[in-house]
Nucleic acid binder design. Sequence first.
DNA 1: AGCATAGTGTTATATTATAACATAAAATAT
DNA 2: ATATTTTATGTTATAATATAACACTATGCT
Lengths: 136, 136
Amino acid sequence: MNKKNKSLSKNQKLVLDFIQGNKKPVKAYSILSNVQKKGINAPPQVYRALDKLIEMGKIHKIESQNSFVACSTSDCETPHAIAFSICNNCDEVSEINDSKLFKYLLDFRDSNGVKFAGYNLEFFGICKSCEQIQKV
Amino acid sequence: MNKKNKSLSKNQKLVLDFIQGNKKPVKAYSILSNVQKKGINAPPQVYRALDKLIEMGKIHKIESQNSFVACSTSDCETPHAIAFSICNNCDEVSEINDSKLFKYLLDFRDSNGVKFAGYNLEFFGICKSCEQIQKV
DNA sequence: AGCATAGTGTTATATTATAACATAAAATAT
DNA sequence: ATATTTTATGTTATAATATAACACTATGCT
């Protein structure tokens, strides 16, 4: 058991369950329509849960897509230091877990010598399966 | 004169002029209301110009803010390889121009050995002036 | 028990972005 | 120089994303 694992509220659980049930990132209104049978009725309820889950590091927001995906590490240490690869062809998103990269970025200082508290990094390219298809 | 400097259309010029006239990133509807006296009437006209300007590397989109800012290098070589710092306190955004960082990221390969065509990187933290204020 | 904090439910509305269609201007090829 | 293609424009309507504001409820402290 992890100290950081604050117990989730009802709506937070519902939203997280749905996100975790999807390999691909999901959109807020898709979450909404899928949890409506379970008692969530309106956008603010979804967005509030999303905000908290992001804070807790349970999920991440893919900024360039306005979509949300479960964190691939069981308990994210650095909710605001995260990297994704996004396929320009099929929109597949995967989380990049490369400790060297993370260290490089968290240690990075700007020209004023200022370190940053976090970052969001999205790589774009063609994923392996799309590349295969193009070759055929 | 630069070969890459395709001449801009009327709407593209209007939109770019307004963005360049602002130190801070601007929002699409703020652009719209500011160019309305100059003959642009509706959102699609703004968004179309924005799309083209991004393609050309004249401007960048700050994904986490849905805002747009002029590229700080006169003629951006890598429109989709860009880094910003964003102040969590005052929302100030500045473009980070660090060739080492750029090279590191463009050379980065994921666990499959796949290189990426581009990336978007946003650092978050407290900017220098906000830090000063907090100390006082 | 009393209080503070966090979460819920709801309505309405703000903000961001695109679809779809008709037309016009510009660039390129023959 | 004109036909063709590509790019841009103008317009209306609407889709998609996100938050404000308010009343109320549950939970965790001390």
